[in-house]
Design a protein around this nucleic acid. Structure first.
Lengths: 147, 147
DNA sequence: GAAAATTAGTTACAAATGAAACTAAATAGA
DNA sequence: TCTATTTAGTTTCATTTGTAACTAATTTTC
């Protein structure tokens, strides 16, 4: 058995490399981290979501979301409003600054992604992403996190 | 732009899911973590390596390796010997216990991997791993970590 | 409609991680 | 050969992360 042929290892190495690269860019150029980036992207498509909504759409747990929301409010990139339907929850909206920031970061993030995927053909990329989807389902099945 | 179509996000979600699943298994069943698993696998193929060798073969930095070696020695899974060629370094070898443990864990790890990849055809898997290799090189190129 | 169970989110604590500073040994340069 | 630089590995400190316990509101159940 060779570590380098072990799929969990291969995935981990690639993912960490990509994440580290893009995280450094978010941080150095725009002062945000990956969880903040994720939340901003989601809110930029659909404003006015609760922490729970954001957790669901970002694959991050509620603790991380909680910390991220606090930080984004502090940075003035989102605002918190009471939630009429549920007094425990709040809803979040981008501020002008938040929208401006995400509008700046997005094209650069897409450019990074493009730089990355241009090493693959369209067909290869499609197939690659299809495999990711399949593997996700399979892991859920194995670890029984998707009942 | 949709977060779900963003390749760095897709990779991160899948990799975390797989890593978490397998890490839980290593920990619960065998009391080791992922860095320890990696070192043990490498040593089980080629004993008598230095921390630097292990760092090179495991994509982990020297700090993490240092901590991992310390922990593995404490657990009695490896032994540390002086390095004749270089007094700064040491060489590590599996103990009987270490070899026994890794021999137990390996087949189970491979079974986990098999469970995972059986959702893909042989062709798909080959193509998938080829893409991983290509993307790794591309990230290195983009982030200029591979001069 | 009150008690029990669930859910939204926060806080607190412990463990993992990363960067930088550090020690000690090896190598390079003059 | 003596100094300067590089290298192997460790330690320290700050940040991140994960788990569990918690508060408060909502829903369920009887």
């Amino acid at each position: 058995m060779e570590l380098h042929n072990f799929l969990p290892y291969q995935l981990s190495v690639l993912s960490n490399k990509v994440s580290t690269g893009i995280a450094k860019f978010y941080r150095d150029q725009h002062g945000i981290n990956v969880p903040e980036w994720r939340v901003l992207v989601i809110l930029s498509a659909t404003n006015h979501q609760t922490a729970k909504d954001l957790a669901n759409h970002s694959h991050m747990d509620k603790v991380k979301i909680s910390r991220t929301m606090k930080s984004l409010v502090t940075k003035g990139l989102i605002v918190e409003r009471t939630c009429k339907e549920d007094a425990r929850a709040r809803r979040y909206n981008l501020t002008i600054n938040g929208r401006q920031l995400i509008n700046e970061v997005k094209p650069k993030a897409l450019a990074f992604e493009n730089e990355l995927i241009k090493s693959l053909s369209t067909t290869e990329l499609k197939a690659f992403q299809k495999c990711i989807t399949t593997l996700n389902q399979q892991v859920d099945k194995i670890t029984s996190k998707n009942p």
